[in-house]
Design a protein around this nucleic acid. Structure first.
Lengths: 162, 162
DNA sequence: AGTTATTGCTTCGAATTCGAAGCGATGTGA
DNA sequence: TCACATCGCTTCGAATTCGAAGCAATAACT
């Protein structure tokens, strides 16, 4: 880094280590998912979330995995074609599309998850103590909640007046 | 998660919180970089690394940001066309391409970095105590080093014998 | 009710991504 | 020195990504 940064060196180092480690982890996990289940990381995330909730709207799904809506439409059509999920209109709201995981989808998650977990354990948790694990979990949970709460930077003051 | 996981719930929660938080952070940072410098996150990472090292080979750059080589060729050509970097052959090794940051590139990094840091500070460091910061930095550094050391899963035993 | 926003999703086009294949340059073993 | 593997990078094609624009359903305001 050049002389421009006004961030404490420790913070900068922490930030870079965080981003780099996650990149590496994601990369490794991607290989495993492709090899064992022919799934991309996004697809796995979607299926995992659905395995938990059974049924979600497109928006809920997209928000959950931090993904664009148009991108989700594409992925959902792929998953549907593969018979892993089903799409249908919501009875409550004609606009909403409900995505439901199929038995095949559940089976695939079940088949892929152990290997996935194995990779995460080996790369992420292996070098950590029990205390590290708790610290990390606590910190990242707090950070995530903070980010979810934070207004998206341009919290468009909602055209007031009038 | 269905009944398939054999991972301690705390580990699973930690893993998900980590990935989700980083996704959110990356997303926010991407907006800022696009708005203030018309840069993608990858491009910023490349320039930041070059601002530090001044000159790197393609492979060093790609490894540094966890990126495919072909992807880097593409990005490097974009950056070169924008006048932010220069590419030339290495005197040591005719195969290697040396990428050098230009004054314009350095200037752009300098112009964008403060805002970048501001976003990181607001989203990542704001909810953390001084102790959290150290814990996180320590943990992620250790994890990153562990991952960098670890054989890439299929450490092709190098066709031995003979 | 009758506009007028807003919401939820999809379609579209452009940009970005990766892996496989290909190219010269470099190293290695005989 | 002569093959032969390896390395560093680029080219190629296919897949994935996003945002903007569009469409239909719902909500909000009067």
């Amino acid at each position: 880094m050049p002389e421009t940064d006004a961030l404490h060196p420790t913070q900068l180092g922490t930030y870079f280590a965080l981003m780099e480690a996650v990149s590496l982890l994601q990369h490794a996990v991607e290989q495993q998912l492709r090899a064992e289940g022919d799934l991309s990381y996004v697809q796995f995330q979607l299926l995992a979330r659905l395995a938990d909730a059974r049924q979600l709207t497109m928006t809920e799904l997209a928000d959950g995995v931090v993904y664009s809506r148009s991108g989700l439409t594409y992925q959902a059509s792929l998953l549907e074609r593969a018979g892993l999920v089903t799409r249908g209109p919501s009875p409550d709201d004609e606009r909403a599309t409900l995505v439901t995981i199929t038995d095949g989808g559940l089976a695939l998650v079940g088949r892929v998850l152990p290997g996935h977990i194995e990779v995460v354990r080996r790369l992420l948790f292996n070098p950590l103590t029990e205390e590290d694990l708790h610290d990390l979990g606590d910190i990242m949970t707090r950070v995530r909640n903070h980010m979810r709460a934070e207004p998206p930077r341009s919290a468009a003051p909602r055209k007031s007046r009038k």
